[in-house]
Every structure is written in structure tokens, then in C-alpha cells.
Amino acid sequence: MILLNIIKAADYKLLKEKLPALPWYMQQYIEHKLPDLSPSTLLEYTRDYMRFLHWLMAEGLTLASSPSLVSLLDLERLTMANIDSYKLFLQLQLNNGLSTRERKLASLKSLFHYLSQVAEDEEQYPLLKRNY
């Protein structure tokens, strides 16, 4: 039990260190999920998000110069073809097996659900206006 608490504390510290590299809306999501998910799970989410953000940049789907600058508008512009391309990237470029791909996509799906269904702007509209 003590070892688990040490691991959770270490993962929480690492999570806090990695958060500034993410866009504000991803940071907000991680903070929102802290009471519900373990720091280890959220640390994996941040890794998934960073991989996705770097992929967006490499594919020219954002003009952001760093992952933290990828905008919500960049996410709104994504098409199903883009999502399919990301799935192929996970499979062919990263050699991720089916369960790993599904886990990585589940973390993104959870984020997109939060942005389009839970989080609100100052006028109580969803932060993300379009979601696949």
C-alpha cells in the first residue's frame, strides 16, 4: 500500500510538471478529472495528448509552433479522414496493437466529449463546437 502511494505521489508530481506543455483546454480537462482518475491514468492521458498534438503539427493540421499553442479551432477543423489518418499512424508508424490504439483513442474521445458536452465558455456554450 505504501508503494502505491509513493507511485501515485510521483505520478502526480510528474503530471504537474507536464501540464504546462499542453494547451489550456487540455490542462483544464486534466484538472477536471483529477478527483475521478488516478494520477497514473492522467499521466498516460497527457502522453497520449502530446503524441496527438505532435502528430497534428507534423501533418500540417495546425499552424501552432508548439503543442501548447494548438487551438480549439484546430480541433474543430478535424475531419473523419484526419481521425482515420491518426488511427493509421498509431497502427503503422508506432506499431501499436489494437488494445493500445483503443486506449489512446479512448483518452482523446474522453477529451473531445468534455470539450463538446461538459466544458463551457463564459456564455455557457460548449468549448468545442464540433466533435467526431
Rank of each mutant, 00 (worst) to 15 (best):
A58S: 08
T41L: 03
K8L: 03
P20M: 06
N131P: 08
L69I: 03
W24P: 09
F89H: 13
P20Q: 01
S110R: 00
K16T: 08
L108H: 09
K16M: 07
F112H: 13
D11N: 10
A106L: 08
Y45K: 06
E44R: 08
K16V: 00
S85E: 11
L78D: 05
E120N: 03
H32N: 14
K18Q: 01
L127G: 01
K87L: 12
A81E: 13
Y29D: 04
L22F: 07
I6F: 02
I7T: 03
L88K: 14
N131A: 15
Y29E: 07
N82K: 05
D74Q: 05
S110L: 06
L34C: 14
Q93W: 13
P67K: 01
L72W: 04
F112S: 04
M50L: 15
K13Y: 05
T79F: 05
Q91K: 12
L105F: 05
Q124W: 09
K16R: 05
I83N: 06
A10G: 11
E123Q: 14
N96V: 11
A58K: 06
D11M: 00
S38Y: 10
L78P: 09
L78A: 05
L15W: 00
Q91G: 10
S99N: 15
S38K: 11
I7V: 05
T100N: 11
M50C: 05
Y132A: 11
L37I: 09
K109H: 09
L73S: 02
K104F: 02
